[in-house]
Simulated scan of single mutants.
Amino acid sequence: MTESTIRKYYEKLLPGNVFSKNQFSESIVEKTELAKNQNELFVITKSDNVKPFALAKVFVENNKLVHENLGSFLILTERIKRTYLQLVKNGKVVKLSMI
């Protein structure tokens, strides 16, 4: 995998596309943002789970794409604002506009 792997993946994660799927549920892409370093991306998804919104971080490790769950929540705006502020504080994302 090259440095452009994350960018290529980011470009394919369009709103409305399936991000993940298993026997219990399916998560649909709501929003994606590429990190400043372009080595990570952040994905907001929506599903029909009890907590319908989730935030994931995707990065390359040992030549594999890793998907890390950063949490799920009932209401998009409050939880995502807190998570976003922490990511910005750490200099991880360029921006993450609210949906």
Results as ranks from 00 to 15, higher is better:
residue 41 L to N: 05
residue 16 G to L: 04
residue 48 D to Y: 08
residue 67 H to W: 11
residue 36 K to P: 00
residue 39 N to G: 10
residue 25 S to N: 12
residue 18 V to S: 07
residue 7 R to H: 05
residue 34 L to Q: 06
residue 58 V to P: 00
residue 67 H to N: 08
residue 65 L to N: 05
residue 36 K to M: 10
residue 53 F to P: 01
residue 80 I to A: 14
residue 5 T to D: 09
residue 49 N to V: 03
residue 31 K to I: 08
residue 22 N to W: 04
residue 95 K to Y: 12
residue 79 R to T: 06
residue 7 R to C: 00
residue 17 N to M: 13
residue 49 N to C: 09
residue 11 E to W: 04
residue 53 F to N: 11
residue 33 E to G: 10
residue 23 Q to L: 03
residue 84 Y to W: 01
residue 92 K to I: 00
residue 58 V to M: 14
residue 73 F to N: 03
residue 59 F to C: 06
residue 85 L to S: 12
residue 47 S to P: 02
residue 34 L to R: 09
residue 68 E to P: 01
residue 93 V to W: 05
residue 80 I to T: 10
residue 15 P to S: 08
residue 52 P to T: 01
residue 35 A to I: 01
residue 78 E to A: 11
residue 3 E to N: 14
residue 7 R to F: 06
residue 4 S to I: 13
residue 63 N to L: 11
residue 18 V to R: 09
residue 87 L to G: 02
residue 37 N to H: 09
residue 59 F to V: 07
residue 63 N to K: 15
residue 62 N to I: 02
residue 14 L to D: 01
residue 38 Q to P: 00
residue 12 K to C: 06
residue 31 K to P: 00
residue 71 G to F: 05
residue 36 K to Q: 12
residue 12 K to N: 12
residue 94 V to W: 04
residue 27 S to Q: 13
residue 45 T to H: 12
residue 87 L to H: 04
residue 17 N to K: 15
residue 37 N to T: 10
residue 4 S to C: 03
residue 8 K to M: 09
residue 11 E to D: 15
residue 18 V to E: 12
residue 75 I to T: 07
residue 78 E to L: 09
residue 12 K to P: 00
residue 59 F to T: 10
residue 73 F to T: 03
residue 20 S to D: 10
residue 24 F to M: 05
residue 70 L to R: 08
residue 37 N to R: 09
residue 76 L to Y: 09
residue 16 G to T: 08
residue 81 K to S: 13
residue 70 L to P: 02
residue 52 P to G: 05
residue 39 N to E: 15
residue 86 Q to S: 14
residue 39 N to A: 11
residue 56 A to Y: 15
residue 64 K to W: 04
residue 8 K to R: 14
residue 57 K to T: 02
